[in-house]
Design a binder for these strands. Sequence first.
DNA 1: GCCAACGTTGGC
DNA 2: GCCAACGTTGGC
Length: 156
Amino acid sequence: MRHYWLLKSEPSTFSIGDLARAPHKTTCWEGVRNYQARNFLKAMAVGDLAFFYHSNAAPPVIAGVVEVVRAAYPDYFAWRSRSVYFDEHSSKDNPRWVMVDVCLRNVFRRPLPLEHLRTVRGLEKMELLRKGSRLSVQPVRDREWAVILGLSHAAR
DNA sequence: GCCAACGTTGGC
DNA sequence: GCCAACGTTGGC
């Protein structure tokens, strides 16, 4: 049973274009420092798919689709004292944070703006659209996934 | 740049 | 365990 997710990234930090240029179009998804988001990372399985969302962008959009190619493992950036993701409370014996690896599957020719998604029937309960939602890793319901993929095809 | 929403910290 | 203060996220 495949599960669906949504991953947020600020394009000024790491965009879907950056992923397209990465070796093997694959990257580790480091830097998640929120427990709820971390627990969703832990729940991911190889083969799961996720939307790549550009947050803090103008406009914010769903930009494409990635596939989980490696399940959760320790986020070693937490151990690097000079990393912005350093966390003194995470040790190699007892890692606090995890990351997964994702591979680019699809870049939407027309990214789907948040503003548009808010008007789409079937997405009313989507976590991304909840007022005040800040979760950077979140589950997407099967139905929501299908609706959004349909939009991306219709936009071709 | 503003600010609402939310998570974390730390005094008590 | 409560909760005020503070820091961060992220849309607008």
